[in-house]
């Protein structure tokens, strides 16, 4: 029997597979299809201080081997998440969950993190400083080491839970941003969020997305994500959650060899609702195929 267990910031996971924020809602749609307790954990929809509808539609476009989204952080706000979504989730998911936090100001990040700090079911807080869809802030926190470090330090003051900073790939030097987050007290890093892109409808000569631009994800971004995980692994000591285009157990192994301690799966859930269940089921077989006994042994194995 192979061992798929990993440890993420001090909390054990049965396996490293984690549905990525924004692609798994609050879990119930998937709980109708399979027992979501098979997951390592999952990261729920990015939550802000107040309810948001997000961007106008269309906010989805197809790309070769991927998709663009410009959802714009639609969520019911942190109070409704805590009072309505999490109690409902507790009925179908019995492991610590990852809270994904977004904001438009330092105060907002702090406020939302403080609220999730008080929720027992929340195991980790994943702070998204990278959502490329929102005008007026979301982008800027993740694009300079100073701003990323400042947000990290500010939210660090209000929570003892493992704090994971989720980084944007839309930067010239992701390594310096990763190091700034580590220095400011981050317990882990998630990378990558979506890559900014666009599509144009030739017939009407306008962008397909109402927002103009959107975030690219899916298999198209896998090599870029893998490269960033590899580079950041060389520069930091804290664990990395690797994501971007992961859609098979092989991709999980590749991400872990690059340096990921765990792996998030995003867009794959949207086209195959059973993607995470299938990846988890395939993992032991793939491990055996490559002679891997203990999955955690291969973290960073390609360095």
């Amino acid at each position: 029997m192979v061992n798929t267990k990993v440890c993420l910031c001090g909390i054990p996971l049965d396996n490293p597979v984690i549905p990525a924020s924004g692609t798994f809602g609050f879990g119930y749609e998937f709980a109708e299809l399979y027992d979501i307790d098979c997951l390592g954990t999952f990261s729920f929809k990015g939550t802000t201080a107040t309810p948001r509808f997000g961007n106008p539609t269309p906010r989805i476009a197809e790309t070769p081997s991927g998709m663009l989204n410009a959802v714009g952080l639609q969520n019911p706000g942190v109070d409704a998440v805590i009072e309505e979504e999490l109690p409902r989730l507790a009925k179908c998911f019995h492991k610590p969950v990852m809270a994904n936090v977004s904001g438009f100001s330092e105060e907002e990040y702090v406020h939302v993190c403080e609220k999730f700090d008080a929720v027992e079911a929340v195991g980790w807080i994943e702070v998204n400083i990278s959502c490329p869809n929102v005008h007026g802030g979301g982008m800027s926190f993740g694009t300079s080491p100073e701003a990323a470090g400042a947000i990290t330090a500010a939210v660090r003051r209000v929570t003892r839970k493992p704090l994971i900073l989720k980084l944007s790939p839309n930067v010239t030097d992701i390594v310096s941003i990763a190091k700034a987050c580590e220095a400011a007290g981050a317990d882990g890093l998630s990378l990558i969020n979506t890559l900014m892109g666009m599509r144009i409808d030739i017939r009407c000569r306008r962008p397909v997305l109402a927002n103009g631009t959107g975030g690219l994800s899916g298999p198209a971004v896998f090599p870029v994500a893998l490269r960033m995980v590899y580079q950041v692994y060389e520069a930091v000591k804290i664990p990395i959650i690797g994501m971007g285009g992961v859609s098979s157990a092989q991709d999980v192994l590749e991400m872990m060899l690059a340096g990921a301690s765990a792996v998030e799966v995003g867009a794959a859930n949207l086209v195959n609702p059973y993607a995470c269940r299938d990846i988890i089921a395939d993992l032991p077989r793939e491990m055996e195929k490559y002679g891997i006994q203990t999955l955690s042994d291969i973290i960073g194995g390609a360095h």
């Binding site: 692609t23 509808f53 539609t57 906010r59 989805i60 998709m67 989204n69 959802v71 639609q74 949207l270």
Partner: peptide
């Protein structure tokens, strides 16, 4: 109709007010 990411409620791609 709306452009869809998943078609089953997970991605918030197709929301309307």
């Amino acid at each position: 109709e709306e452009r869809m990411g998943c078609g089953f409620g997970a991605c918030m791609g197709c929301s309307c007010q």
